[in-house]
Design a protein around this nucleic acid. Structure first.
Lengths: 229, 229
DNA sequence: GCAAAAGTGTTATCATTACACCCATGG
DNA sequence: CCATGGGTGTAATGATAACACTTTTGC
């Protein structure tokens, strides 16, 4: 047995970060799951995560775990809840600070370790390990709230996109249809979209392409705004 | 020196809960602060809080701390963020799971301990200890978001109240005027208000009194709804 | 009696939706 | 050449706000 080095008068919990990684495939919202190779919950699916180092903040820890699993360095992440039920891990007392990330599925590489990772559409997620079912429900709830107060999309859509693509993303996240006239006017008046001169001759007449105005986008992420959908 | 009992191979952080207690006095939103009696930050004001026991969840810990400080057993509390910057406490690595509570100022008794506690209106809060300034900003931001998705007021208003009182509460929280016609129709159509036969002959002609419909209120707290203000 | 607080009637403006129609592409 | 997936014009409906006016109380 290894030497035990750190001594406390009162017991301290272990602290982990977990990351619900949302990816958009242009049609549906997906989550990235890892198949556990060891007990407890061996063979079950779970979110990527791991122990927090003593010299890193939770955000740094979550980004490190995300990088190890997806190869993404600067993804957008957002802390949404800390899970602390006494028996949530059968081995020992573990508190998990949970984040969600928004990424483009196409940019994700396989993880460092040989862990099996796989994307699942939101309506086909298998039963998860630990309290990760609740974790997923709360992540979705928080994402659906956040969409009313911060811009979303820069991390999920290609560089250039049509208004319809942006609406489809919002519809996938909110799981409801949005009126396209209203959606378009609301989006344009936020000011974080730049209309390009280019158009896309897709399956219909020339359609305008848009790009995110990063400066305005970041400012609105920081200061917040209010969107009625 | 006391005997040290708990041994870990890797260092574990300490975990605390802190509670931003919001109280409404019928006019403004206030927060409850404790004057620190010992270093670090001796003499500075801070939110009530303390170490999490190994056999309680964060929610139980926050409620325990709240009870010790206010005498309130069943206040409404809501977790809003976990603070984990490496040097947020100068003594050791401390992670704080932060909640806010909504209480009636009139029901708060002095705390168990001799700690000096005092209510401060939101626009007169002194500089706070640790990272509690940021904590307060984030608590207010989250409360202002939450008000769009869950009913608020049962914990802050008297049993019976007028529509104007309810609107004043919302205006105090959102820090902006609400159109009184619109406010009234929006509130009534949520269904969590019950109009009483009684009226209040206050400073004007007879005004209807309302009560919260607890069943509907709790259901909407749980399932969420959407309110545009 | 008058100022202040709060409710009501009327109307103007704007947001939102519904419906019908048009256009360009891909088979 | 037609079905499909969007886009647009017009108009109805409903939400929101502004303004003037009323009621009652406290001073």
């Amino acid at each position: 047995m290894e030497e035990l080095k750190y001594h406390y008068k009162y017991p301290h919990p272990s602290v982990t970060t977990d990351c619900v990684v949302f990816g958009y495939d242009g049609l549906r919202l997906n989550v990235l799951l890892i198949e556990r190779g060891a007990d407890p919950f061996k063979g079950h699916w779970a979110f990527p995560g791991g122990f927090l180092n003593i010299d890193e903040s939770a955000q740094q820890g979550a980004k490190r775990e995300l990088f190890e699993e997806t190869g993404l360095r600067d993804a957008y992440i957002h802390q949404f809840h800390t899970f602390s039920a006494v028996n949530r891990d059968p081995r020992e007392r573990v508190i998990s600070i949970a984040y969600y990330a928004l990424v483009r599925i196409s940019e994700v590489k396989g993880g460092d370790d040989a862990a099996k990772a796989q994307w699942f559409p939101l309506d086909s997620v298998p039963p998860l390990a630990f309290d990760h079912d609740m974790m997923l429900r709360m992540a979705i709830k928080e994402l659906r709230r956040q969409i009313h107060f911060e811009p979303i999309g820069l991390e999920l859509l290609p560089e250039k996109f049509t208004m319809t693509q942006l609406r489809h993303l919002y519809e996938a996240i909110l799981n409801k249809k949005c009126n396209h006239r209203h959606f378009s006017t609301e989006m344009l008046k936020t000011g974080f979209l730049t209309q390009l001169n280019e158009t896309k001759a897709a399956n219909n007449k020339a359609t305008s392409l848009y790009r995110f105005n990063r400066e305005k986008y970041n400012q609105m992420t920081k200061n917040g705004f209010h969107l009625d959908l």
